[in-house]
Each structure stands twice: as structure tokens, then as C-alpha cells.
């Protein structure tokens, strides 16, 4: 990686408030558990059977990582939940994780980042649209779904427009000046709604900090007219 620490590449992952899921890819299964832990099972095929040979179990805040090799390295068949950590598991902090696991950690973090970008944190119903500020703050994604079928998806670097006709495109700086009045009005409403969502998020954050460590998110304001 050419870097001296994992922290210089990425921040610890954060699975707070994410709903459980178990997602299989070609070589691994990544799970968000009920506890908020993130679990990665690495698979190897043996006698036409997929076996879990290595597990990384990462705490919800991303700072504690257990590594273990189930069944003393022989692995277990893949089932619907990760193997429990044995007593002889290896235990690391984010900053002490050996470099050979960095890529695996980054893989888990990439998955969590994707899920955060699709998980609503603040939902705000306006007169014309449902505006959702996602969990991937800072610079969280925003999806503004207009009741007439149009949709605007803002990420930190692109704006995607789906017109009510279904025509879709990505907006770039040079195109902003060529937009029709209609599309511009959708964009204006999306930007205004985005600002309201950020303001609501900030206000709720303030209240949350006064409370007893219970998250007030996700939160919904208003309802569809």
C-alpha cells in the first residue's frame, strides 16, 4: 500500500443504526449482525463445498477486530450465520491490525459505506417530494423523490436526474446553464429540501447529545400530502 498505517488510508468503519444483512459475493460473505458487528467470512472450495476458512469480526465502531480460523483451520461449511469466535481468536485494534488484513478491512468498510449511502437518516416530506438524507455523512447522499415520478440523487460529486418521463442523465457543471426551466425548478426544490434536511439533522444532533446515548435517528418529518 506504500502507507505506514491503515488510518492513513481509511477511517474506522461505522455500522451504527444499519439494518442486519448477510450478503454473499464470489469469495466472501459480509454480514451486518443484530449487534451491529460487521463480519466477513472468507470462503474456499473444498470437495465442491464452500467452507469458511477465515473470519474477520469487526466491532460496530470499527475499532476492534477479531480474526479467527474456524475448526482449527479446517473450516466449516457455509451456513446462514458466521461461526462463533473461538477462545483462541486473534484480537486487534484498528491501529494494530496487521497489514495482511488491511485489504479485507477495506473491503468491509467499502460495503458499509455503500449501505450507509442507501440508508435514510432524515426523511422529510415536502409539498412535492420525499427528501431523504442518507447515513453516509459527512457529505451524505440525498435522494429527492418527487411525487410525480421525477427523482434527483445528489452525491458528493455528481447530481443524477431522472425526469418524470423516465429520461435520466448526470449533471455536470457545463450543463447546468443549459437546463430547462422545469428541470431547474426540480433542482431548486431538491436543493432547498436538502438544506432543510441538514438543518433538521443538526437540530436533532444537538438534542441527541443532551440525551441518554439513545440515537434519535432515523427520523421522519411530515408525511406525504
Amino acid at each position: 500500500f506504500g502507507s505506514s498505517t491503515l488510518r492513513s488510508i481509511i477511517s474506522p468503519l461505522n455500522a451504527e443504526r444499519l439494518k442486519p444483512i448477510r450478503q454473499k459475493t464470489k469469495n466472501a460473505v459480509v454480514s451486518i449482525l443484530e449487534s451491529g458487528e460487521v463480519c466477513m467470512e472468507f470462503l474456499k472450495e473444498q470437495n465442491s463445498q464452500e467452507r469458511v476458512k477465515e473470519v474477520l469480526r469487526i466491532s460496530c465502531d470499527g475499532n476492534l477486530i477479531y480474526v479467527y480460523h474456524p475448526n482449527e483451520g479446517k473450516g466449516f461449511p457455509l451456513v446462514d450465520r458466521p461461526p462463533s469466535p473461538p477462545e483462541n481468536r486473534l484480537s486487534y485494534t484498528f491501529d494494530s491490525l496487521p497489514e495482511k488484513y488491511w485489504k479485507k478491512y477495506q473491503y468491509a468498510a467499502k460495503f458499509i459505506k455503500l449501505v450507509r449511502s442507501k440508508t435514510p437518516k432524515v426523511t422529510y416530506y415536502t409539498r412535492y417530494a420525499k427528501c431523504m438524507l442518507m447515513e453516509n455523512s459527512p457529505t451524505a447522499d440525498v435522494e429527492v423523490c418527487f411525487y410525480d415520478g421525477a427523482k434527483i440523487h445528489k452525491t458528493s460529486d455528481v447530481i443524477r436526474v431522472i425526469e418524470k418521463s423516465g429520461r435520466s442523465y448526470t449533471l455536470e457543471g457545463s450543463r447546468l446553464s443549459t437546463l430547462s426551466d422545469e428541470v431547474r425548478s426540480y433542482l431548486d426544490h431538491a436543493n432547498e429540501s436538502h438544506c432543510v434536511c441538514l438543518s433538521l439533522e443538526s437540530a436533532i444532533n444537538t438534542e441527541e447529545k443532551k440525551g441518554e446515548n439513545i440515537s434519535l435517528f432515523p427520523i421522519t418529518f411530515g408525511r406525504r400530502p
Binding site: Q23, T25, K26, N27, A28, V30, F111, C145, P218
Partner: peptide
Amino acid sequence: DDLDDEEFYDDHLEAYFKKLLPHGMQ
């Protein structure tokens, strides 16, 4: 552990994302 060509997206993940939306309205 070849993770380079791993792709998360599939129907299962899409269904999960849809369930995250409040009131089931896209």
C-alpha cells in the same frame, strides 16, 4: 483472497435497500 473483482450489487442487496425506505415508497 482475490477481492479486487468483487461486486456487491445483486437482487438481494437491491431488495434490502428498498426495504430501508420509509413507508415502502420509492
